[in-house]
Write a protein that binds this DNA or RNA. Structure first.
Length: 211
DNA sequence: AGTGCGATTGACT
DNA sequence: GTCAATCGCACTA
């Protein structure tokens, strides 16, 4: 900790503070929109790595595409925690996907983090993602967890507290938030539950989808 | 105990 | 544009 302008500053995390749970929207769609521009912070032995959220998807209550649709199971129980907890699962046996739980405790719903704009610790991300173009480093839900080394061990993490993985406040002002249908699902496929920064080069999805 | 299937990615035509 | 990799887990019996 250091001191500047009479305020206590957390040097370790560039003065960024965790989101307060009380400020998180409980509603899943509101949370998906709210999280655009916020920062995912990963604390690793090598140092801090972080990225600004530029794309999310809402998996709402009663959503046939949501993992909580058929009730609580061993895998999806983190979705039923109070807002601001991590739900991490393995997709296609290949990619870990990071979600933020939403809704009141006992209600299963959440927000998928689909893309991040790299901020701090880019060399740390490249340790596992080779000499990839900056633009592609965390463009996609499986890529960002790979870059930040997020896996099932972080399932259930409280993201509103500093630790191995947490959510920090906005890095700077965000641009226009647009919405579209969600990517890669078949059920409830026509709902506009994907949110993204329209002008960000760090979002996934095709040109036509992002227009 | 066996089966089928992804909220994806990277390699390749 | 197409397609296979790969595995934890939910579901059925």
């Amino acid at each position: 900790m250091g001191r500047a302008n009479g305020l206590r500053i957390n040097c370790r995390t560039n003065g960024r503070l965790p989101l307060a749970r009380s400020e998180l929207p409980i509603d899943t769609v509101a949370l998906a929109r709210y999280l655009i521009g916020k920062v995912v912070v990963r604390e690793l032995p090598e140092g801090i790595a972080s990225g600004r959220i530029v794309e999310t998807e809402a998996y709402v209550v009663g959503d046939a595409a949501g993992h909580a649709y058929r009730g609580m199971t061993r895998r999806n129980r983190s979705l039923f925690l109070e807002p601001g907890h991590a739900y991490v699962y393995l997709a296609y046996g290949i990619s870990h996907l990071l979600n933020v739980s939403s809704e009141m405790p006992g209600i299963g719903a959440g927000v998928l983090i689909r893309a991040l704009e790299p901020l701090e610790g880019i060399p740390i991300m490249r340790l596992h993602r080779r000499a990839e173009r900056l633009r592609d480093l965390m463009r996609g839900p499986g890529r960002l967890t790979s870059a930040l080394r997020i896996d099932r061990r972080l399932d259930g993490t409280d993201l509103c507290r500093e630790g191995q993985l947490w959510l920090g406040s906005d890095d700077h002002k965000s641009g226009e938030v647009a919405q579209s249908i969600r990517i890669g699902i078949s059920r409830d496929a026509n709902r506009l539950l994907r949110f993204y920064l329209r002008d960000s080069p760090f979002v996934s999805g095709s040109r036509s989808l992002n227009r």
